[in-house]
């Protein structure tokens, strides 16, 4: 248990620092940035208390906001993703989720990708809708969501595969 908590705390801090120091300043093609801090929300232990999980996700989003001067958009997107996670888990993992026996280290790559894709698109859509905050710019919102999502998904999947120990 302690080991898991320690890993999560380290992951929290590391992902936050990588996000604000490196990923917020990539600006690929002018405006495309990956938001990889949501890996923390993806990989948070499934069995843990949901209230704590919601709160930690909120805190993570708020810290990213603090660094990027964006009001509360990351906090809102992160907490929504955390709240919707059981649904996304159910739709991607199916039976495994019912039995509470998901191990992110040892899932099939296809399932992992579908899980991350749904989550990322949800998160980014909320994020950019709130950031642009203007319904008439819906094309801009969709464009940003699409391209940033692609970037985030590729990076997230690579990072998860690279850092999972038990994969054969």
């Amino acid at each position: 248990m302690n080991n898991v908590t320690g890993t999560n705390i380290a992951r929290f801090i590391l992902l936050l620092l990588i996000q604000v120091i490196i990923c917020n300043h990539i600006n690929f093609l002018g405006y495309i940035n990956p938001y990889i801090y949501i890996i923390f929300i993806f990989l948070y232990p499934v069995k843990d208390e949901r209230l704590l999980f919601l709160f930690i996700s909120f805190l993570l989003g708020l810290l990213v906001d603090l660094f990027s001067d964006s009001g509360g958009v990351h906090a809102a997107a992160a907490v929504s993703l955390a709240y919707a996670r059981p649904l996304i888990l159910k739709s991607s993992f199916g039976m495994l989720y019912e039995h509470q026996s998901i191990k992110f280290n040892a899932t099939e790559i296809g399932i992992l990708i579908s899980y991350i894709t749904i989550g990322t698109i949800l998160h980014h859509l909320i994020l950019f809708s709130l950031e642009v905050f203007n319904v008439s710019e819906i094309l801009l919102i969709l464009k940003k969501t699409l391209f940033s999502s692609i970037f985030t998904i590729i990076l997230s999947v690579l990072i998860i595969i690279l850092f999972s120990r038990n994969r054969k």
Binding site: R50, L51, L54, F55, F58, G61, L62, D65, D69, S70, G71, G72, V73, A75, A76, V79, S80, Y83, L130, F133
Partner: peptide, 22 residues
Amino acid sequence: NKTFLLFLLLLSIALTLTIQSH
């Protein structure tokens, strides 16, 4: 409904901050 209520609370805090920042 404690999970849902906490979610609503946190979301409304985030939205307030967003709107204020505008």
